[in-house]
Amino acid sequence: MTAQAVESRPTTPTAKARWRGGRWIALLGALIVLVAAGTVLLGPEQEAARPLDPADTSLQGSKALAELLRRRGVTVDRVDSVEAAAALGGDRTLVVTDRLRTSPDDLAAVRGDRLIVGDPFGAAEMAGVNPVGAARQRSREPECSLPAAVAAGSVHLGGIAYSAPRGTTGCYPAGDGWTLISFPNGSGTTTVVGSGEFMTNQRLAEDGNAALALNLLATGKPVTWLVPPDDPGTGDLAGPEGDSVYDLMPPSIPWAVLMACLTVLVVAFWRGRRLGPVVTERLPVVVRASETVEGRGRLYRARRARARAADSLRAGTIDRLTPRLGLASGAGPQEVVAALAVRTGLDAREVGGALYGPPPTGDAELVALAGYLDSIERKVREL
């Protein structure tokens, strides 16, 4: 081996090479961001679900229940303020959900029966009914004497469990409490349920949910359904002073979201970079072909791999002679042997035995085979 001075070339990718390898990833990422932003900004606006709203057709809405009541001849009035509910007057059934922010005093002017979903303002406490814990949403049996519950049977209830002191009727037990409480008020009956899940479009057709809802509301009285105002500044997303939840966010939240998005893009660009084209370098040493051949021959001899050495010699000879004989690279043994016999005048059986015969049994036969193959190649080159 001989050492040679070689020119040193840098192998670290330059800034230009990095940009060349990663520009398509950066452009693709920017395109994805633009498409996503355009979809959000230009796409059709979807109306948010309004849980337990008699005009909402989503899974959380209660339009199906309102339509069932109307088919039974019950008037259903949807109002968004206590003042509007009181203005309707008469003996009515008031539905109040836990998405409202009001107080029992605000409802004093509304006479008649009341169905309170959850405990939006502590109305149950004024009759001595207190929440005693949370109840898992599942099908429950009434286990009480309330006619509306007995007729409905099993109902999907949960949410809040209440105590049932003297003068109240508790149904659908959950732990130490009840998920439905009924008690008289000054002008009618108040019913408190731990959750309005059984009144939604999604659950109304299950168990006895529809039966219980109709038994509580279809009593021959008009229904006043009190819902949050449509104005998001005063609805259930409003803060204590009418500000929306987005107005109450700290100013740093949008910047934090923006920095998180930029971080994701930078990490994607970093992990998706390419190293660029392979840099070629001259070897510091030159190894002669003869030394490589001798080294491989010593390895064959050390392992006594005569068959493998013979196969290597034969394969090399066939590869070199095939184009000289005008044959294709996939020519079979018969074609190669026949062409060599015609071109060199050698015996076809000897040529076939040398190229495709059994492996040699000793070193002498291997050397003789190598010499015979070399002589065949010389004759073909001299013709």
Rank of each mutant, 00 (worst) to 15 (best):
G170T: 03
L28S: 14
T191W: 02
G242C: 06
G194E: 01
R101D: 12
A66N: 06
V267N: 04
L216Q: 05
P240K: 12
D98V: 00
L258M: 08
W24P: 01
S103Q: 09
V342D: 15
V79S: 03
R324I: 10
E335C: 07
M249E: 11
T224F: 02
V155K: 00
D363A: 15
Y356Q: 11
P165Q: 02
G188H: 01
K16N: 14
P250K: 02
A135L: 10
P222R: 05
L34G: 05
A3M: 15
Q60S: 11
T168F: 06
P229G: 08
G43Y: 11
A26E: 07
V267K: 05
E125F: 13
G61D: 00
D105G: 15
R203F: 10
I318P: 06
A309K: 03
G194Y: 00
M1R: 13
D56R: 03
G362E: 06
L180N: 05
D91K: 06
R349V: 08
V278N: 12
R304T: 13
G239P: 10
K379H: 10
E197Y: 14
A26H: 09
P184S: 09
R298I: 12
A55E: 11
Q46M: 15
A218I: 01
R349H: 09
P229I: 05
Y372Q: 14
G208R: 04
R298T: 09
E350H: 11
E291A: 15
V117M: 09
A64Q: 02
R114E: 04
E365P: 07
E83C: 08
L216W: 07
P10L: 11
T97P: 05
L68W: 07
T179C: 03
D91F: 03
G196K: 06
W19Y: 10
R101K: 14
D230Q: 13
R114K: 09
N209E: 02
S244V: 13
A260Q: 03
M126G: 07
M259L: 14
L180A: 11
V380P: 08
P323T: 04
A161Q: 03
A307P: 06
D207K: 10
G90D: 07
D207S: 12
G118T: 06
S244C: 02
G332Q: 07
A15E: 15
